[in-house]
Design a protein around this nucleic acid. Structure first.
Lengths: 207, 207
DNA sequence: ACCTGAACACCGTTCAAGT
DNA sequence: ACCTGAACACCGTTCAAGT
């Protein structure tokens, strides 16, 4: 029926923004939580085009998934930036904690994006270098706060890289375990719980 | 050719230990690192039987993967136990650190097992409760050391559960990021690197 | 009891068209 | 330029047999 709707909406032979429509159909499939796998054919079906039409916009299925991942990374970076915006005057530690909380919340609130972003290694063949750039930018947000905390004399002078990886690993690990329900947390308690888990690392970095 | 070999080895109509053969063929496929997906047909092909034969032993593909995961959890638990064995007289902190290092090393050295264990949620429908039991046992090993450290007055009296999740999240997150090469570490440096990442959490728990 | 074989409804991807 | 349709070599799973 999604197919029928899409077909009604356009009078022309051309779709208009097929590329975007395909990306969001892919997201819908995963977000709906059902057991439906993301397939090129199902995605095209939802958009209301022949499955071959997708090849105009994506070289193959992996390229479509890479587009989903790219959108996800951009959304994550935006979320992290927006998290910091109202905290301009807060101390670096609180800002770092807020980043960790926002990161985990993003994963839990966008499980479809997150799984594509961190599930398979899409850039295995170096086909999508943009993905590496975006990860680097997200990393940079975290690293910036850790450097600021160190500059303010609040954090020990460990190598920044290792400090970032400690925090990132913890946030990513918790998010992943929550997504596969190995750790069960009610959404309303997520932020507080994340703070509890982050507390030891942050305390440890302080020494 | 694997098929031919298997066919030669047995003279009888029956395979002997088909179930086990299937589980290990599945592992071989993922371990080989190639892009070959684990399919019931490919697994059966490697063992040298008709793909329908697998259904004698596994209700469906998910059940086969669950068997792989089960074996993985048992191996992980064994690894953790063996890690603690020579450290009976060490202090709880060192034992906990050793567990974290062993956990990450297990993931990196058994990527096939690890991905099946923590990738999809195989027990979604409650079909494989054994998997939950085994995760619980692995969790118990970690929890035991944290409780011991607390009892020895070395760790602050935080709730054990949250302390375990901090350490587990960090180890799991680091392992996952290393597996998808978001964090790149040479195998020879893995243990030392893991210790560096764990250091802040362990220090934080100490306060 | 254990394995096979044909059949069905799905895939991704290629090639050769249609508008 | 953009989309379609038939075809190919794959899937998982079901049903009806073979030894």
């Amino acid at each position: 029926m999604a197919a029928r709707k899409a077909r009604k909406r356009r009078k022309t032979y051309h779709h208009g923004d097929l590329r975007n429509a395909l990306v969001h159909a892919a997201l819908d499939i995963i977000s709906s939580g059902g057991p439906e796998p993301i397939t090129l054919r199902e995605v095209s079906r939802r958009v209301g085009v022949n499955h071959r039409a997708a090849y105009r916009h994506f070289e193959d299925l992996t390229a479509l998934l890479a587009a989903v991942a790219e959108e996800g990374y951009r959304a994550l970076i935006d979320t992290l930036d927006e998290t910091l915006a109202p905290l301009r005057r807060a101390n670096p530690e609180r800002r770092l904690e807020a980043l960790g909380v926002a990161y985990v919340a993003f994963a839990v609130d966008h499980p479809a994006h997150y799984r594509i972003m961190f599930g398979r290694r899409l850039n295995e063949d170096g086909r999508f270098p943009i993905l590496e750039d975006l990860v680097e930018r997200a990393y940079g947000v975290l690293a910036g706060e850790i450097r600021a905390a160190q500059a303010a004399g609040r954090f020990a002078e460990l190598p920044t890289r290792e400090a970032v990886f400690s925090v990132w690993s913890l946030a990513h690990g918790f998010a992943s375990l929550a997504l596969v329900r190995r750790i069960r947390v009610k959404r309303a308690l997520l932020e507080g719980y994340t703070r509890q888990l982050l507390a030891p690392v942050l305390a440890g970095l302080r020494t």
